[in-house]
Design a protein around this nucleic acid. Structure first.
Lengths: 248, 248
DNA sequence: CAGAATCCCCACCGATACTG
DNA sequence: CAGTATCGGTGGGGATTCTG
């Protein structure tokens, strides 16, 4: 049954990549695993609308492709967890590039819920060194009790989960989506604090600065309404050939 | 009908990217357009197993997403062509990264046919500056009568279609897959020339060197046969947290 | 030749129920 | 908690046909 899996019979390596992670949900499972091992139920929580049978099938396929490894934790936490292999973890930059590209989509709509992994990875994706300058800070983000440490220094950002509460300049806890609305939706921090969706401890000025380090890029032009425009915005020589060697 | 398109209701930008280019065949259509405008029939030739209705639907969706633009060529070539928008063309680096990642797949199998676009893009993907050193050359690759010029200089490669025959050090014409077998399959050039699948003109030594500029990386470890390995190769602290801030 | 329309079929997906 | 079983819906594969 597994043998008649639908495949592109194409020698292109990118097509093979789609054979491995092109099925529905596959890349989002990778996203959910990007910050560390997760249990089956954790994955369901991060992907609220996936069916359990589909998730199980994707995990089987990703394991067969050597992207995901299945592991049983030693007692007493006798749980089964899934984690990325070293090679599978190399998909994270691609995931970031996809996110950075799609952030310019003219059809991107905001306001939809994000998983914790999405929020943390989006910070890695959208961090702007120019916006950071020589700003330096340590900020803790707490969502669903999970602590994530963000360290900004030297125009770089490192952010990810930590096991124990670190010493920080500020700590922001509460609702992921409220946090995303402040960082990406331009919602005032005061508003999120006022309705109790976020709670702040420590240096307020640091947080005010921190949430502005992740600017959204300007969207690309939307699709033209009238199709078959005889002349494109920039004149292009007719025909299927376009020299691309002008870079040398 | 088009309104209930299946979508991830997920605020993550990468999920939105998959809403746009995650459907089956979508990214391969982008691949076929990466080297310039193509007609419907050209696309079918590069994607031999796609159904025409599916291709038409993907083109509609990609156009609605502002990734593809539809254009009617002026007479006398009264043909309709599809081309990437500027924003759509920014998917090419992601396509390359995907190909470079998948080239390490333990389940990558060779020998399947590649479209012309795949072959040319694969050269951009797998070009190794270290292998090139200070080698410099101009090589023409002719597949199905389409001329592609590859220029190697200063540890860089530029390759793409050209309209008219350029002055080159060497010229290789014939079968795409035979060319791929020489570059990626380690097949001796002599064998391909002997079959008549490839024809060489100009400096043979240049071609011998050129085809070695695109080394395949070593594959990643395959999936472990015994699942639930209690201890992974490298000991990992149990639990869903893994600090990732050690880079600072 | 370009591409839209139609048919059938099946694999996949989604949802719910169920079980060790 | 970690999946499996089942069933209905749908989108894709493939073939064919039609039209400009």
């Amino acid at each position: 049954m597994r043998s008649n899996r639908r495949r592109y019979e194409d020698g292109c390596a990118a097509a093979h990549a789609l054979d491995l992670i092109g099925e529905r949900w596959a890349l989002l499972v990778v996203r959910e695993l990007a910050l560390g091992p997760r249990r089956f139920t954790d994955l369901r929580a991060g992907l609220p609308t996936i069916s359990p049978n589909v998730l199980a099938q994707r995990l089987d396929e990703l394991e067969a492709a050597a992207i995901v490894r299945r592991r049983r934790l030693p007692p007493p936490a006798a749980a089964r967890v899934y984690e990325l292999t070293e090679w599978g973890a190399e998909l994270e930059p691609i995931l970031r590039d996809l996110g950075r590209w799609a952030a310019r989509s003219p059809t991107l709509g905001g306001g939809r819920p994000m998983s914790t992994a999405s929020v943390i990875l989006s910070l890695r994706t959208m961090f702007d060194p120019a916006a950071a300058g020589d700003f330096a800070a340590r900020v803790a983000l707490v969502f669903d009790g999970e602590i994530h440490l963000a360290v900004v220094a030297g125009g770089r950002l490192a952010v990810g989960p930590v096991a124990t509460a670190p010493t920080v300049d500020a700590r922001l806890a509460g609702d992921r989506d409220a946090f995303a609305a402040v960082v990406y939706g331009g919602r005032p921090l005061d508003a999120a604090l006022a309705d109790g969706l976020l709670a702040l401890a420590g240096d307020r000025a640091v947080v005010d600065r921190f949430v502005r380090l992740f600017p959204l890029p300007a969207p690309a032009p939307a699709a033209d309404v009238d199709r078959d425009s005889p002349l494109p915005p920039a004149a292009v020589p007719p025909g299927p050939t376009r020299p691309t060697c002008e870079t040398l």
